[in-house]
Simulated assay, not measured.
Amino acid sequence: MSTSSRKSRASGRVTLDDVALSAGVSRITASRALRGERSVGADLVARVAAAAAALGYVPDPAARALASARSHTVVVLIPLLSNNLFVDLLEAVQRALHAARYQVLIGVTHYEAEEEEALLASYLAYRPAGLLVTGLDRTARCRDMIARSGVPCVHLMETSNDPALYCVGFSQVDAGRCMTDHLLQTGRRRIAFAAAQLDPRVMQRLAGYREALLAAGCYDPALEWQSVQPSSLALGGQMLEQYMARHPDVDAIFFCNDDLAQGGLLTALRLGIQVPSQLAIAGFNDLAGSDQMWPPLTTIRTPRVEIGDSAATMLLQLMRGEMVEAHSVDVGWQLVQRQST
């Protein structure tokens, strides 16, 4: 009995050796038959396929990649799966890559640099065909691992002027400035910024908010609230309630994410705060339900599906060795004005 056969019996996993033995062919012939190589006759292909089906053999993509130095797996690293922002993006990526016969392997970093390092080190060992990573802010070790791997990589949600980086996203700073300018144009001057999670893109929105208020001469750092807690409806409600208690002259709150803003709107309704006549409320991302709030939420609509589609298309071009027209693609964003401002 061969070592591999003993291992397959010990693990319960059917191996290529088992298929070859059942079909009465060599291991290499079984492998070539399952790959559909023309050098193997039709009768042998049928015999090996029948043996594989009878045994319930499932090819090991990791072993195949290591053996051939090729893979049909794309690694996608995102911060959270609980955020609809990334769910929408992932669905678009999955559709595009599945159509090109690539499998998607998802890693969740939880906004932790150490987790991203560990995931990259683990996944790169399987020699993926490509990488999709969220944002541009990562450790020197992560950047080094990506560069040394030689695996094509596209960055999501942000843009860059660095010609060595491939990116699809939009300017978070410009979007943050635009929303603040909108609130200023409605006559608001005591505009607060409520932030949670504090990932790099939230801080870029904060930078846009500051730029707009400094230009208007009404920036007050006391009206910024930066919380490291995860973004949620409950936290948004707490933020609004405490803002009104500590800064009753606040006339607008720009929440860094829609779930915070939705929580703020619900709390305003409970407290009898008139929105928008007494207090304007704005969000970011145009998440599900924002148009159904009362009043409907003014927000920045971010093109998650477009980012996923464009990033997957760019990565497919890189994996095929094709020329990419632009290394950085700005898909833009849209101010959606509703009744909350």
Score class of each variant (00 low, 15 high):
Asp88Trp: 14
Asp88Cys: 15
Asp88Thr: 15
Asp88His: 15
Asp88Leu: 15
Leu89Trp: 15
Leu90Ser: 06
Glu91His: 15
Glu91Lys: 11
Glu91Asn: 15
Ala92Cys: 05
Ala92Pro: 05
Ala92Val: 03
Gln94Gly: 01
Ala96Trp: 00
Leu97Met: 04
Leu97Gln: 02
His98Tyr: 09
His98Glu: 12
Ala99His: 01
Ala100Cys: 11
Ala100Gln: 08
Arg101Cys: 08
Arg101Phe: 11
Arg101Asp: 12
Gln103His: 13
Gln103Leu: 08
Gln103Thr: 07
Gln103Trp: 11
Leu105Trp: 14
Gly107Arg: 05
Val108His: 06
Thr109Tyr: 04
His110Tyr: 07
His110Val: 00
Glu112Phe: 12
Glu112Cys: 14
Ala113Thr: 03
Glu114Gln: 13
Glu114Ala: 12
Glu114Ile: 05
Glu114Val: 07
Glu115Lys: 06
Glu117Gln: 06
Glu117Pro: 04
Ala118Thr: 08
Ala118Gly: 04
Leu119Phe: 13
Leu119Val: 06
Leu120Met: 07
Leu120Thr: 02
Ser122Thr: 05
Leu124Cys: 06
Ala125Ile: 04
Tyr126Pro: 00
Tyr126Cys: 01
Tyr126Ser: 03
Arg127Gln: 10
Arg127Tyr: 05
Arg127Glu: 00
Pro128Cys: 09
Pro128Met: 12
Pro128Thr: 08
Gly130Glu: 01
Leu131Tyr: 04
Leu131Ile: 07
Leu131Gln: 06
Leu132Asn: 00
Leu132His: 01
